[in-house]
Design a protein around this nucleic acid. Structure first.
Length: 267
DNA sequence: TCCTATGTTGTATG
DNA sequence: ACATACAACATAGG
């Protein structure tokens, strides 16, 4: 399930393990999860050292361990982090298990679209520092949005919002939520938005990111009924603003939900 | 059995 | 070279 706010929520689940020593590491070394990372090197470094800090950006998480070790985790489609008792028995989808005296920190991912990386260095790895600035920061201005919409002018706006190079952390449900609030049809070509729509889109990108982090990012509660989110998946869903039926179709390769009464396709 | 899934990447095509 | 579209990845659940 993880997009921006869910990722930050899962990151915090390991908070009780920060400052604590990792006494053992169990890995599924053959798991696709590790990609180009050597799980043996990861295990060798983390064992006997403390986890110090963590941070989330976009859909990525970074955990710093003592002596210049950097553990990166991406949750893919079905990944999650959990905090388990010290005597926890790992299950099939638990690909990385960090043992501490009082807790077990677990990364699980049944579909294995996620990724675990481990690197050494005095500073954070390049894949991390290359992540664009947060959409909630001042670095994401209207000018940046407008330029990108022009660059991707022929693609449907829904597909454009999913491009991580400009919208770090936005995923399928957040993109739909943003467009619903902005009253823009998901199939509208990115380059066809009016100046007013671009301003609205900029505002709603930031609003949805900020509010999602404040709610889901803290408690993992579903967003309130006033959002599109709780209505979007089930058949027969009704728009919470217009009380008219929602539509669903595949746009940009992903199932997309919108309110036809609010979001009109223009040409 | 068939369809779906809150993500990314490689490849084909224009 | 660049933009766009889509299959593929691997598994579980309805």
């Amino acid at each position: 399930m993880p997009e921006l706010a869910e990722v930050d929520y899962f990151r915090k689940r390991w908070n009780p393990g920060l400052g604590e020593t990792v006494v053992d590491v169990e890995v599924h070394p053959e798991a696709r999860i590790f990609r180009e990372t050597d799980p043996a090197a990861l295990k060798r470094h983390l064992t006997g050292r403390r986890l110090l800090r963590s941070a989330a950006a976009a859909k990525q998480m970074l955990f710093e361990s003592e002596a210049d070790g950097w553990l990166g985790i991406h949750l893919g489609m079905t990944g999650e982090l959990s905090l388990q008792p010290a005597d926890y028995a790992p299950r099939r989808a638990d690909h990385l298990v960090l043992r501490q005296s009082r807790h077990t920190l677990v990364f699980s991912d049944p579909r294995m679209f996620g990724q675990v990386r481990f690197t050494r260095g005095g500073t954070a790895p390049e894949w991390w520092t290359r992540i664009p600035p947060a959409l909630t920061s001042d670095a994401f201005g209207l000018a940046e949005l407008t330029a990108f919409l022009q660059q991707r002018r022929r693609a449907p706006i829904k597909a454009v919002l999913l491009m991580q190079e400009r919208f770090p952390g936005i995923g399928n449900w957040m993109a739909d939520e943003i467009l619903w609030r902005a009253a823009i049809h998901p199939r509208q070509p990115a380059g066809s938005l009016s100046a007013a729509e671009q301003r609205t889109l900029h505002r709603e990108v930031r609003w949805v990111c900020r509010r999602a982090l404040e709610t889901i990012g803290e408690t993992f509660d579903d967003p309130p009924r006033s959002w599109l989110f709780p209505h979007r998946w089930r058949d027969g869903g009704v728009c919470p603003r217009t009380r008219t039926p929602l539509s669903r179709d595949t746009i940009g390769g992903r199932t997309t939900c919108w309110s036809p009464a609010r979001q009109r396709l223009r040409r």
